[in-house]
Design a protein around this nucleic acid. Structure first.
Lengths: 214, 214
DNA sequence: CGAAGGTGAATGAACGTTCAATCAATGGGA
DNA sequence: TCCCATTGATTGAACGTTCATTCACCTTCG
């Protein structure tokens, strides 16, 4: 799903200060190594300098811990979406797309992305997870729509429905990430390119005159 | 993911003849009711007229059973993709998109679709699952690409890269299904509409003259 | 002293799997 | 035709493992 590419090399500093953050980091590592399916308290404990029972001192249980971890990651993702530093709405949009769907991932990040796909799948049956992902999607979709709307106002984009264009792009991003995580073939680059072409042909207004669609 | 909308009311006849098929049906039901996360041999046994130990007589174990179920469903999906009955490549494409992303699902099918998203997520760590989904995606993507190619040859579509257009559409479909399964908001219809607009503005050739892109 | 941080061992439930034992159908030989 | 051996279907009751969680106990520091 959404979260990736936020820190520099790793998502965490090598020396986490608080115990809280050390637990988040341990969870992150365990998730990368074993995936959600293989994620146990034991495994998180293994990545954690202190003992595994200490986890229960800080969190009510596995569910609560994972929920906190999810919150932590989603907030981090939302906080790092490119914002405002671009003159042109089109550049801004491209930057956001690159942020959400980076094409060159080191293996750690690829593993984490796969783990996030697994994590998101839990939302199918877990109400709390669903709320988090709903909120995160809404947030990101609105950001996309805002940029499209700005592009329209500035005359660089056609007069499309910003909400719908945003929905389409977000779905393509989610789909590409899911495919990347669950199939052998590399799909991200292809989708990223076609997404670029989509922006080009559906969003970008012709040089001469902006022509309304729909 | 991909599988849905194949039978008439339910995916199975009410009276399955063989034990094999009865087990597939029981698995289907258990999956709809409890999701992949809550799927146990016990639960499958509960939906099955015979005893739970009988499952081990027919399959080597849970993994083997689920793998067989996955095969069964994916084949079923592939066999029901609309084919050839349309004169126009554009109609054909729309029919395929409707088949893969139906906008009106009864609750049973919606549950099953959610379960398939969970199932697919397992492919992130399970090699055998990954192979199945890789194959299924490739099959469906080629079908899409073939229709696009046909449209180009017939002059109804622009001269785009068929593979890339297919990749984009497939990702959007996967993303929409994933979002539908993992968030509260209804997203399928919006994506389906924007997918239609994508076909319109990126694929369909202008009336007068077909103009090359890219 | 007392509270917070921290530990290792123990507990108990859930779950996949095994197994010895029946039952049903089949078929061949006397 | 009758008998019985064979085989596959079927069952209920265990078994063993994995895993989250708890608990009694220790340490440190204000």
């Amino acid at each position: 799903m959404n979260v990736q590419s936020m820190g520099s090399t790793s998502l965490f500093e090598d020396e986490p200060d608080g115990t809280q953050e050390a637990i988040m980091q341990a969870t992150y590592r365990a998730l990368c190594e074993h995936g959600y399916a293989g994620l146990t308290i034991q495994r998180i404990g293994d990545e954690f300098p202190k003992s595994k029972s200490l986890l229960y001192h800080h969190y009510d249980g596995k569910d609560a811990l994972l929920l906190e971890f999810l919150s932590f990651m989603l907030e981090r993702f939302e906080a790092t979406i490119p914002d405002r530093e671009h003159d042109d709405a089109r550049d801004h949009l491209e930057a956001i797309l690159d942020h959400a769907l980076p094409t060159d991932l080191d293996s750690e990040r690829a593993e984490f992305r796969a783990a996030m796909v697994e994590l998101r799948a839990q939302a199918a049956t877990d109400e709390a997870y669903r709320e988090h992902f709903s909120r995160n999607d809404r947030f990101f979709r609105r950001r996309l729509a805002a940029v499209v709307r700005r592009g329209i106002e500035e005359g660089v984009f056609r007069d499309v429905d910003p909400e719908r264009a945003a929905a389409m792009m977000l779905s393509a991003i989610h789909g590409a990430m899911q495919e990347e995580a669950t199939t052998d073939t590399e799909r991200t680059a292809a989708v990223r390119n076609e997404l670029r072409a989509y922006v080009e042909s559906r969003l970008v207004a012709p040089d001469d005159e902006s022509e309304a669609i729909e």
